[in-house]
C-alpha cells in the first residue's frame, strides 16, 4: 500500500507526538481517507499493522466517527448542515435543492462519481448559515442560486482535474 510522501511525513511526525502508537489512529485514518477516497479493506489492513492493532479494532474506531467511511464516495462530498441554526435559515430547503439538482438522496453518489450528498450535523458555521462543506471547504450564507454556482464550479474543476481531489486549502467563496 503506497501513500503520498506528505502522508508519510505526517504519519512519522504523529508517531513522535504520543506515548502510544494507537493515539495516531484517528487523524491517520482521515489523512488516508483523503488520499484514497474511502477506507478500503487494504487501507484498514495497512493502518492496523502500522499502529499494532487488529483490523477489527480499527473498524471499531472507524464506525464511531461520522467523517470516516468504508464506502467509496463521489469526488466532491457535499455536506449540507440542517442543524438548528441552518434549519432556521433554509438548510433543509438547500438539502432538498441539492437532492433535486444532483438527482440523488442523502448519502447517495451521482452516476458519474462526481458528487456525493450528505445531510450533516452542525459544522460550526452557525453565524453564517445556511452553510455547506464540500470536502473540507466551507460555503456560507448560501441560497439555492449560490449553491448552484458552487456546484457548477466544482463540476468544472472536477472534469478538469480528473482525479480524487481532496480539499481546497482556501475555502472558495
Amino acid at each position: 500500500m503506497k501513500f503520498s510522501d506528505q502522508f508519510e511525513a505526517r504519519f512519522a511526525e504523529m508517531l513522535t507526538h504520543y506515548p502510544t502508537k494507537r493515539s495516531a489512529l484517528v487523524p491517520t485514518l482521515l489523512y488516508a481517507q483523503d488520499e484514497v477516497g474511502h477506507l478500503s479493506d487494504e487501507v484498514i489492513a495497512e493502518i492496523a499493522s502500522r499502529v499494532d492493532l487488529t483490523e477489527l479494532e480499527v473498524r471499531n474506531v472507524i464506525s464511531y466517527y461520522s467523517m470516516l467511511t468504508t464506502k467509496p464516495r463521489g469526488k466532491y462530498n457535499v455536506q449540507v448542515c440542517t442543524n438548528i441554526a441552518c434549519l432556521l435559515r433554509g438548510g433543509e430547503e438547500l438539502l432538498e435543492h441539492c437532492k433535486g439538482r444532483l438527482g440523488i438522496g442523502n448519502k447517495g453518489t451521482t452516476q458519474d462519481g462526481m458528487f456525493s450528498l450528505e445531510e450533516v450535523e452542525c459544522i460550526g458555521a452557525c453565524s453564517w448559515a445556511p452553510a455547506v462543506q464540500v470536502n473540507y471547504a466551507f460555503h456560507e450564507n448560501l441560497t439555492t442560486e449560490k449553491m448552484d454556482k458552487v456546484l457548477d464550479a466544482y463540476n468544472e474543476e472536477g472534469n478538469a482535474v480528473g482525479k480524487w481531489l481532496t480539499w481546497s486549502p482556501i475555502p472558495m467563496k
Binding site: H17, S23, P27, V51, N60, V61, Y65, S66, M67, L68
Partner: peptide
C-alpha cells in the same frame, strides 16, 4: 491532533479517549 467528526468527543473524558485512538 485532528478529530474525525463526533460531537461526543467534546466531552472531556471522551476527548481523551479519542486522543488515545479509541471510540
Amino acid at each position: 491532533h485532528g478529530g474525525a467528526g463526533a460531537y461526543e468527543v467534546g466531552e472531556e473524558s471522551a476527548l481523551m479517549e479519542s486522543l488515545e485512538g479509541k471510540r
